[in-house]
Design a protein around this nucleic acid. Structure first.
Lengths: 125, 125
DNA sequence: AAATTATATTCGAAGATTCGCATATTTGCA
DNA sequence: TGCAAATATGCGAATCTTCGAATATAATTT
């Protein structure tokens, strides 16, 4: 009985919340950018800020959102704070999405090219 | 020059927006649940509704969000509307997350067990 | 045509997010 | 001690999200 409850509630219910929480944490272009900047490892808030070229407070707020959802961990060292992705699998997730996106793009581009070639033979406009 | 702009804007800028849009579309437990229900293929809104056991209007609203973000396509057939995942890679994404979650869970559970065993030898409370 | 079934939309309230701006906190250094 | 650098937080306005309740639309059946 306890094992059943464990399986049902912990796994099935909160697994969805876990996923939704991560999606929420990344549901903003700036936060996707931050996750990608952290792809190769830990970086200070300042380094992230520099790569983004946005307002300091704004970046700090987005980092706070990601902290709150648990997708980054942070470590204070002297003057600065170093951030890293808490779930390395997110790198795989972002890669899958990038690969898929580029593939769709190239299919669309091939289609456009085909149309252009077709129009050279019998222009519509 | 046009190719440079294409690469920069289409790929680098809107790739982040593409990802963020998908994350936003799944940034709610109900919508994660819908995506998982659609894992094995097309289903009618009614069938989704039945599996979720939520209010009809609510499910329809969540489906509308997913439609707006482009993560599902819909096909009307007579009386009903059939939904499916537009990006099959999402199944992989969800699987990676599930696998990772379960692995974390089992690590945590092993850790708890180790603590329990330890406490049998030298109880703290 | 009227009733029924399947699905979507509208509305309004409650709450959450996002942003810029100003300010606080912490640490290191002169 | 006092100042500068790195980072976080508080505030208020604008916008977005979510929900239930009611209603609309469209196809099907009687």
């Amino acid at each position: 009985m306890r094992i059943f409850e464990y399986n049902f509630f912990v796994k099935n219910q909160s697994l969805k919340e876990f996923k939704a929480g991560i999606f929420q944490a990344l549901a903003h272009p700036t936060r996707v950018a931050i996750a990608e900047i952290l792809r190769d490892g830990e970086l200070s808030a300042g380094a992230i800020l520099e790569q983004l070229g946005l307002e300091q407070a704004n970046v700090s707020q987005h980092l706070a959102v990601m902290r709150a959802k648990g997708v980054v961990s942070n470590r204070k060292e002297g003057n600065q704070v170093f951030y890293s992705l808490r779930h390395p699998m997110l790198v795989d997730v972002l890669n899958i999405m990038r690969q898929y996106f580029l593939q769709q793009l190239s299919e669309a581009s091939e289609m456009l090219q085909a149309i252009e070639v077709e129009e050279e033979h019998s222009p519509q406009v």
